[in-house]
Design a protein around this nucleic acid. Structure first.
Lengths: 248, 248
DNA sequence: TGCGGAAATTGACGCAAATCAAGTGATATC
DNA sequence: GATATCACTTGATTTGCGTCAATTTCCGCA
């Protein structure tokens, strides 16, 4: 666990931007008060490791803002990203003392933390918490299974197109825009992080992005800003049967 | 949903073999009675499709005995297994009307079913159900993430060794034997099903199994019965850092 | 006991992606 | 303003796995 994080002010749950999506989404006023009493904030800078796999983990948390990654590593250094943590996503597992994955901040992030024991006790007494966490976990399981299809069966080109269309659609949903026609967005990940997510090398990621650019499926300004002239075209390249999958 | 399934007799929850592991594991006597009243059994033969992805799904269920697979398919036929359903595993998702995956019986199976609506209502009133389902879902999520590392980063040889060692260890845990030294077990899957699980072709599966046999890592009698002379050797081939992963 | 067919093995060949290796272009550091 | 550094691109080459195509083995069944 990282140490040189710094405190970031306090928010009341009422004014919390993830109030309606996070693990507390279903809680009523009284339940929220109880959570309010045991919560505390921590922030981490881009690049910092929030938690190492195997570390003692005495808290659970919600991501309030920023992006983090969940990764697994083999002894020889091969690494696979197994999840992307976006605002409102939940970190840690009630009933588990040690972290199963590395959590690394991709951007600066703010987390709303609860010491694990009090949180677990509260879960026992508060069905709304367990119900919401169940919902979120089922969604994550769907996303993980969607990703298994990508990792096991898609070509490099399809993998890149899938990632781009997922990011584009998530962006659209956050900004409440339609995921149709032409869209623009920023890539929140480096080429290496994309490679770790997609089970590729960073060179292959770079080459496939260049190929999609060459063929007019996407346009790049700088290395991170993407414009998709025709969303349907991109989704066809992803090989998904029309609607595509869940994300987080 | 398949139609030519046939009824298979009735079990009281008290004598149910998965009573202590399934979604009902934490339920008390009264809660069990309530479940007993809404449950019914269905059975399927090996090879039958239990549910097609996209189908209306008006029940959820526990696998009582036998093995089934959860698969996703792309339009062009590429398929990826995203889960293996073993006795006590849960099928379906409260709050979701349509199946997300194909469920196919690998062996003859018996399922303990609940109509979805009554089950959902009962979940609202019965924290023990939601708590247990949360636990099970978190375990499945861990298994899915373990599998993402395998699909994204392991070689064909490591994939096969991983699958074999997982099956061996599951077998050991069911029969309450130590997962050490030499072990024997049967493969519950065809080469093709293994390929779909591992993100390989069946030819590659066959070649890698032959290679492991040639090098003495495993011994085969017939096509399905496996003997592992040295479990540590097999686990080293799997590339896992010693302890290996979760399964189901 | 021998037949039929599915499941599995094995071989030859091709290709997509990994690996190895420069090289470019931005941003930070002295 | 030169230099180091990091993120990324591009090229040359290798290789692991997929594809296509025969066999062979196994197992049920007449």
């Amino acid at each position: 666990m990282a140490h040189d994080d710094h405190f970031h002010g306090t928010l009341t749950c009422g004014e919390c931007p993830i109030r309606h999506r996070a693990v507390c989404a279903r809680c009523e006023a009284a339940e929220l008060d109880a959570l309010e009493r045991i919560k505390y904030y921590r922030s981490f800078e881009a690049g910092q490791t929030v938690i190492w796999a195997g570390d003692q983990m005495d808290f659970v948390a919600s991501v309030v803002s920023g992006i983090a990654t969940l990764t697994q590593t083999m002894e020889d250094g091969r690494t696979q990203m197994v999840g992307l943590l976006l605002p409102s996503d939940f970190v840690g597992r009630p009933g588990r003392a040690r972290a199963a994955y590395n959590v690394i901040a991709t951007t600066d992030i703010l987390m709303c933390c609860f010491r694990r024991k009090p949180f677990e006790e509260m879960m026992e007494r508060t069905p709304h918490l367990a119900q919401r966490l169940l919902q979120m976990t089922l969604d994550e399981l769907d996303a993980a299974r969607e990703w298994m299809l990508l990792l096991g069966r898609k070509t490099a080109r399809e993998k890149i197109a899938s990632l781009l269309s997922i990011i584009a659609r998530r962006d659209a949903s956050v900004n409440m825009l339609p995921a149709k026609g032409h869209m623009t967005f920023d890539l929140p990940l480096t080429r290496e992080a994309m490679a770790d997510y997609l089970g590729l090398t960073l060179e292959t990621v770079s080459r496939q992005i260049s190929a999609l650019k060459r063929e007019g499926v996407i346009e790049l300004t700088g290395k991170r800003h993407v414009m998709v002239p025709d969303m349907d075209r991109l989704m066809a390249e992803a090989g998904d049967d029309s609607d595509g999958g869940v994300f987080g």
